[in-house]
Write a protein that binds this DNA or RNA. Structure first.
Lengths: 251, 251
DNA sequence: CTCAGTTTGTTCTCACGTTCACAAACTCCT
DNA sequence: AGGAGTTTGTGAACGTGAGAACAAACTGAG
């Protein structure tokens, strides 16, 4: 993990030294903002890699693909980490966002379902580099058991309870076929996992207190298709009235 | 959220009703609704596979993981496809949603970047079964050129313009490393692609009229991490005042 | 020191999205 | 036929998010 060693010399006497009274992390960052913080973090890392010490909200917003008013408002939920007339210290802001998200610590993760997608996830370097450590790859298929994948071998799904307990796993990734997803989810939750990233194309039922985020490729494509269709209809203009074919029922 | 229980109470009753009056697709479906339509469609397909002919908004909402008021409002944007006192005809509603999204027609798609993730996408059966047809797999790496993948072989990235033109490709999927993504995007857009699904962890700049949706695994995990962190803090309760390490500067 | 220029943090307003609650419309039973 | 029971479609209330605009806070030059 990269230590947040800040070359905090360029901005002398920054407003950061303000008395640390009651600057406790606020209790209500809007979801929309939370979803953008990782984007800002990545933009800051890029700037950092280019040895840029300071940036304005305008520059950072451009790099993150949002407008600057939104960026400033988002950052204001974390606290006042900028300096008026100057901008933001890249290293400092980067650390603050990382801390707020929670990626200054290490999050052990299990991946369940090592098919095509599971393989890709297991090999994805972006996990490790961003505070996530894969502690196990699980699959129920005996044929895949023991298969080596990088520096890790595939284990049976039965180990899950002991694994979660031993490594304090809080986050599970489901990359199984849809039919297996709910069962896997129940096992994970039962074992103590409280956050799930679901790649299986199905709705997961979980008890209160468990967070689920889903990534669904075909849904994303369908949303694009909808807009694409609108574009063509708009172009064709006069060609309206697609009209419903009445007897489409298959039975 | 909704009740974690899956009530299997089905009302197997008959009742097909369709008034084929001219129901022109309205010109303004909210984005939030568009994003949920594919979920409803999948739920309907599941019901259809189980030979269920009719369902209430409550049942469909449960299957889709939303509450019934939201579902009814969403569906009302498409038209009045239900029958009061009865519910929705599964086949009929399924067709209406599919038509509204645009998946009754066939969408040719190109995938660029056939690494780990690209392989998984190319093999994903969910594309074909939902109205999307992969017409080409492109990669710039000469070592991968010609490699067979299912019934399709990997082609060079230079073919892109002719491919897009020949197959009328409107949707492109980018699964390249981050550094290559913007260039690939520019080439795709230049060739005529107007919708892009981006898996590369980077912000894409596109001209007006081009839609981009991004799928970013590490962002999803970071969002989960944020909430996970909050949960632990909440548990510790009294342990407030994490307080900003004022002197986080290591120097 | 003062003043002009720059950039943040915040307030205000508007648009969008969610949920409630209920009339309208339908079925079924007597 | 009429009334009780069901379920949709929607108007209204409420909450959240986006963007414009501006005062406050800083820098640097003269």
């Amino acid at each position: 993990m990269t230590s947040p060693r800040s070359t905090r010399s360029s901005t002398p006497d920054q407003g950061v030294s303000r008395s640390a009274s009651a600057r406790v992390p606020e209790r209500g960052i809007p979801e929309a903002t939370v979803a953008r913080l990782p984007v800002y973090l990545r933009a800051l890392i890029t700037l950092s890699d280019r040895a840029i010490a300071t940036c304005s909200s305008e520059e950072l917003a451009t790099a993150a693909g949002v407008n600057s008013a939104k960026l400033r408002k988002d950052l204001s939920y974390l606290g006042s980490y900028g300096t008026r007339g100057v901008g933001y210290d890249v290293e400092y802001l980067r650390y603050q966002i990382a801390r707020e998200i929670g990626v200054t610590q290490d999050w052990p993760v299990v991946i369940v379902g090592i098919g095509n997608l599971g393989h890709a996830l297991a090999n994805y370097s972006g996990f490790r580099s961003r505070g996530f450590r894969i502690v196990a790859l699980l699959d129920s298929d005996p044929a895949r058991l023991g298969e080596k994948l990088g520096d890790m071998s595939i284990r049976g799904f039965d180990d899950i309870e002991s694994l979660v307990d031993e490594h304090h796993v809080a986050i599970g990734v489901i990359a199984t076929p849809a039919v297996a997803a709910q069962d896997v989810c129940d096992r994970l939750v039962g074992a103590g996992v409280t956050s799930i990233l679901n790649f299986a194309p199905t709705v997961l039922n979980v008890p209160d207190g468990v967070d689920v985020r889903k990534v669904d490729l075909s849904i994303e494509l369908q949303i694009l298709a909808y807009h694409e269709q609108r574009k063509s209809l708009a172009l064709d203009g006069a060609m309206d009235l697609v009209d419903v074919p009445v007897g489409m029922e298959t039975a």
